[in-house]
Design a protein around this nucleic acid. Sequence first.
DNA 1: GACCATAGTTAAGATAAACTTAATTATGGT
DNA 2: ACCATAATTAAGTTTATCTTAACTATGGTC
Lengths: 320, 320
Amino acid sequence: MTHVRLPPLKSLLAFRHAAKSLSFKEASEHLNVTQAAISQQIKTLEYTLDMTLFERQTRQVALTIEGEQLYRYVEQAFDLLEQGVRTIVEDPNPTKLIISTLPSFASRWLVSRIGQFQAVEQSLNLYLIPGLQIARFQDQDLDLSIRFGQGQYDDLKSELLFEEFLIPICHPSLIDQSQPIKPQLAKLKIIEDTGPDMRATWSVLQQHIVDDSEQLPSYLKVSDATILIEALLSGQGISMMRFSLAYDLIKKGQLISPLPFYMKSTYHFYLVAPPSHFKYEKVQKFRKWLKQEVKEIQTSWEEYRDQTEGLKLIDSTEKH
Amino acid sequence: MTHVRLPPLKSLLAFRHAAKSLSFKEASEHLNVTQAAISQQIKTLEYTLDMTLFERQTRQVALTIEGEQLYRYVEQAFDLLEQGVRTIVEDPNPTKLIISTLPSFASRWLVSRIGQFQAVEQSLNLYLIPGLQIARFQDQDLDLSIRFGQGQYDDLKSELLFEEFLIPICHPSLIDQSQPIKPQLAKLKIIEDTGPDMRATWSVLQQHIVDDSEQLPSYLKVSDATILIEALLSGQGISMMRFSLAYDLIKKGQLISPLPFYMKSTYHFYLVAPPSHFKYEKVQKFRKWLKQEVKEIQTSWEEYRDQTEGLKLIDSTEKH
DNA sequence: GACCATAGTTAAGATAAACTTAATTATGGT
DNA sequence: ACCATAATTAAGTTTATCTTAACTATGGTC
């Protein structure tokens, strides 16, 4: 089919409104211009198409057959343009907030606090999608993701929630504080979280609990922090753990950190979404609330760091 | 749903082409502008929407999630605009010519000649739709109508094909030319065509064949000229007839005009169609051919008028 | 590793499109 | 007959859009 040259687009827009209301005056009001402008736009459109689109009657206009025909398409077309703009600019579902995050973060931290947010935002329905996989915004109805990573997600905007630190951790019953620590640790199993963020930490931990010459400790590997916590709580061994997951359990006395060192995590928690999602009112509200809540972790960390005697930072620069 | 203000339309068009080719350069070539123009249009679109639509990589661009999303709509929308323009500007079916006309004109005049046209335009398929009703261009697939009327069809363009005249007519066997005509006519039935164009003629015909004081002639009413011709050919009476239908039959000696008068028809044959249809090449060709063919009627009329002794024009000014 | 070619960006000025104003036409309603 | 309303038109102004030209960044080539 041969190519058709489109008439001036503004004249089509003027036509759309004029045809809709069958009045140049009304069209001009919709478009915030004078009716002379509409009259001229229609004229140029008719001239371009070499065709009469409006039958000029006195004080009113009517569509010709061709005008009628054209209008069907033009109306649809501009509706589509408006819809298209709407879908990227507007929140498609202002009453529904869908958040994906890690199961461990969801169960150990978020769900216990999110009730407060829901209480304040009663008209907002919250949906949590826990998942280890990185949820894709294209494929599903998803507003926001709380991701643990390095903050680089192409096409997505990400905002750091808090800095993560890693500390050694185990059940308090495994350590007799009145005795030297190191020999006790050497007997413990290392529970290894196989997550990529922890990769560099196990050798560091191992160095702290065994001498190089000695026999290597045994390992228990787990893939999810939720399972790791269960293992630790039941006293199965020692591990490195994200402070954000540990601090609450330490406060309650359920776990302790037997060694005074910490590492900077290469992974941190980020709020992640397509840039447009950050403009949604519901997302802004949640973000504000979440950052407020997250301060607790930060504060706890600062307290922990300041109050733990002899705490040292161990650098985990790993070469690839 | 709230109202969305559309971004500048040209920027959306630029976006359409840029997104289609993922190249501002190509887009600029499609739109016959420089690529700087595209760059600026995309910039204004992004600024208007407050959103990044293209990821600028080196020497190439890629759509962001939002750009991808927007593009789906924009492409569709402009396709619709193009389609809309096409449907009113372009011939939707250049190989098919659909003509509606009166059954009498079709069978008595057009079909016998149309073969010549078809022979010349072999790639064009002709469709004739005979019908007494006025075919509506909105409702059906119809290119052109040959209508018998007064040339006023709102929203449609009409072009006079030829002037129509009405003459008295009957079978030659009913008249003995060697005897006085009038007494012979008085005995004939009047076959009345009930068409609106003929309304004023019957009283005129009656006046010519009977004296006022005498008994009125009997009438046979028919609604279609095809039936009228059958009735006349079988010698059932006298009638008034459109010259365009009669002249061929007179030439062949199948009918004669027994009285030397004629009337101007208030109805004539017109080529009728929406103005846009007259731009179609197939319509132009057919029109040219038809006007050529129709000259024969005109010429025949002039010959008839000049060669018929004592032929008088009777005015049929009818009051409504 | 230097250099060229390519695609996109930016600023300034030129051109074209679109709009306003104001006068004008046409006609339905009072 | 007169007024009010809606559309048209011409002229001049404003705004949008485009071109030009200089610049940036980087992949490919020798």
